[in-house]
Design a protein around this nucleic acid. Structure first.
Length: 578
RNA sequence: CGGGGCGUAGCGCAGUCUGGUUUAGCGCGAGUGGUUUGGGACCACUAGGUCGGGGGUUCGAAUCCCUCCGCCCCGACCA
């Protein structure tokens, strides 16, 4: 490809709304252009990278016996009504009607479609296990697209679905897929990509992992133990906190004038916040009041609480709702509450800690020396479960070492779905015993565009991306300086032809621009290898060679050696990424 | 959906507070011609704008008021 003909300009300045490195460089480098919020056109450079990523995806999916299919983006609502998701999923599912008034939707994931496919194509245990996958457009009507290609509304996803006759078979395949994912992310050049325990959310199912590309701009927070043995999303992360145990002291009511927050109370009574208990009121999807009790220095993890009370919706409760249940906002307590009007969930930290300061349910009064087991007489209906948010430095539940907090971009995930979709949608096979049984399913997703953006986040300098050889838009960037001089253009053209003859992907800057201009563009395009030819290099029988990550450093290479050198670098790079 | 910010040429911005000397300007980018050529060169000329849309106030609106829309950031939400 000659740069003079490449569609998509490099920009000197980033659009104002681009904040993260990947967003800035994808726009500045001419890889992608915005069309509307969360909708992008991929230009040739971006599309070439996409193709390279997809090629590796296909190789890895085929390697674990996946078979590629393609399902429609537009799906009939009735299919999603069968699984129940048509009504359960919120407005991120884009619903519309076709010309006949039939309810349709844009697929945000394809469990329903693939189940419909499987139940017509797969009938016998003899056909299982099987995995089908597709690389297909998804649409999610995101409330807030952001960070360029990292959170968009329309995107390309590789989604795979496996079907099994037993949980054991699913688990075995899940493990194979996990390994394929690790290979895939290594091959596309993500340096730090961890699989972590995750919340299965709307997908359902028991076991799931997310693959997180570590990046400061990541939207997810994860916790890892120093030795890597424990890795979990904040939504599910647990820690092995020690609770202060002491001889229970007599319960005592103390005046705490104006102290409505934990900080106020702790400061006023000269106790650490960890010796207080806090009461947080929520409202669930039905408007029912929920009280969450936890040690004062800890935060309620709403994802855990949501799961504990089996409610998709959760919001802080307004003071009037709290008061209506007989509680005093700011001084509320688990004691003296109308149990019929409020559901109570308490964290172990609240149960196991001794002599806490808690609200007295009267204005300007708290109790000292609250001990849950002693002081809460009627514990019926009180749910004790972990609802604490893990903090950086909290002890790892496995090793006890301080957990490290990281930010990550979710680039893939895998779920053991079980029969969540196959049972309600009657996706069965005939087993050896002649009986129809629901298929046991797994599903496996990878965001293609997000993976591309994540690679930039992990691999760039001040001037642009540093593409890994495996997905680079071109392997070699050839620059001719003083290109109007025939010996330069002829030497360039010859090398260009030679490279193409050897199936090396080369981008040839034949524009004759000034050096600085050409180099800045080359940096933004980020090809891993660069060759520069100018009268100066030719006079010495050389060409100039550099790797993208060298910055401004380069080496002079005898012109006769350059082909072999480039081939060697390409081979070595790809070997490192295999 | 809550909070904040922004909307002027393809991109980045000034002008808006204090309405009129602006025929709406600057830089980048684009086109033509010329000079240049090792880290975003220079000269000359040219094209490119419903100042986000609509309504209002006014002799006069990019500028003031109302309203709608779009976009970004934080939060909420989210396979």
């Amino acid at each position: 490809m000659k740069l003079s003909k490449l569609v998509g300009q490099r920009l000197k300045e980033a659009p104002r709304d681009a904040q993260t490195s990947s967003h800035i460089f994808l726009i500045r480098g001419g890889y992608a252009r915005p069309v509307a919020a969360g909708l992008y056109t991929l230009l040739p450079l971006g599309q070439r990278i996409t193709h390279n990523i997809e090629k590796i995806l296909r190789e890895e999916m085929d390697r674990i016996d996946g078979q590629e299919v393609k399902m429609p983006v537009v799906l009939p609502a009735e299919l999603w009504q069968e699984s129940g998701r048509y009504d359960n999923v919120g407005p991120e599912l884009l619903r519309f009607q076709d010309r006949n008034g039939k309810n349709m939707l844009l697929g945000m994931t394809h469990e329903e479609a693939v189940v419909q496919f499987a139940r017509t194509e797969l009938n016998s245990y003899k056909q299982l296990p099987v995995m089908v996958y597709q690389i297909q457009t998804k649409y999610r009507d995101e409330a807030r697209p952001r960070a360029g290609l990292i959170r968009v509304r329309e995107f390309t996803m590789k989604d795979g679905y496996s079907f099994h006759t037993s949980q054991a078979c699913l688990e075995k395949y899940y493990e194979r897929c996990h390994e394929a994912y690790e290979r895939f992310f290594r091959r596309i050049g993500l340096r730090e990509c961890l699989s972590i325990l995750s919340d299965s959310g709307m997908m359902g199912g028991a076991v799931s992992h997310e693959f997180m590309a570590i990046a400061d701009c990541g939207e997810d927070t994860l916790f890892v133990s120093p030795d890597g043995s424990y890795r979990a999303n904040r939504e599910v992360a647990v820690s092995h906190l020690a609770y202060v145990k002491a001889e229970p002291q007599p319960l005592e009511k103390v005046a705490t004038p104006g102290c409505k927050s934990i900080e106020d109370v702790a400061a006023f009574l000269h106790v650490p916040t960890s010796q207080t208990g806090k009461a947080v009121f929520y409202k669930d999807g039905n408007g029912q009041l929920v009280l969450a009790c936890i040690r004062g220095d800890l935060e309620v993890n709403e994802a855990k609480l949501r799961k504990a009370i089996q409610s998709a919706e959760l919001a802080f409760a307004a003071d009037d709702l709290i008061a209506a249940a007989g509680a005093v906002p700011g001084f509320a307590s688990v004691l003296e509450l109308d149990r019929k009007r409020v559901r109570i969930v308490v964290d172990p930290s609240f149960v196991e800690s001794s002599n806490l300061v808690v609200g007295a349910n009267e204005v300007d009064l708290h109790y000292r020396n609250f001990n849950f087991r002693r002081d809460v007489q009627d514990q019926d209906g009180i749910q004790v479960t972990d609802i604490a948010t893990v903090r950086e430095g909290d002890p790892c539940p496995i090793t006890g070492q301080p957990l490290r907090q990281l930010k990550g971009i979710e680039v893939g995930n895998i779920f053991q779905l079980g029969v969540k979709y196959s049972a309600p949608m009657n996706c069965t096979y005939l087993d050896q015993d002649g009986k129809a049984k629901p298929m046991i399913m797994g599903c496996y997703g990878i965001g293609v565009g997000r993976a591309m953006a994540a690679v930039i986040e992990q691999s760039h300098d001040d001037y642009g991306p540093v593409w890994p050889m495996s997905i680079a838009p071109f392997q070699v960037h050839l620059v001719g300086l003083n290109h109007t001089q025939p010996e330069v253009s002829q030497a360039c053209q010859k090398l260009y032809d030679d490279l193409q003859a050897r199936h090396i992907e080369v981008l040839y800057d034949d524009r004759g621009e000034k050096a600085g201009f050409a180099f800045a563009d080359a940096d933004l395009i980020g090809c891993p290898l660069r060759v520069i030819i100018s009268p100066k290099t030719l006079a010495a029988g050389n060409v100039e060679f550099k790797r993208r990550e060298w910055g401004k450093r380069s080496e002079m290479i005898p012109a006769d050696d350059i082909l072999a050198l480039l081939e060697q670098h390409i081979r070595d790079d790809l070997a490192k990424l295999s």
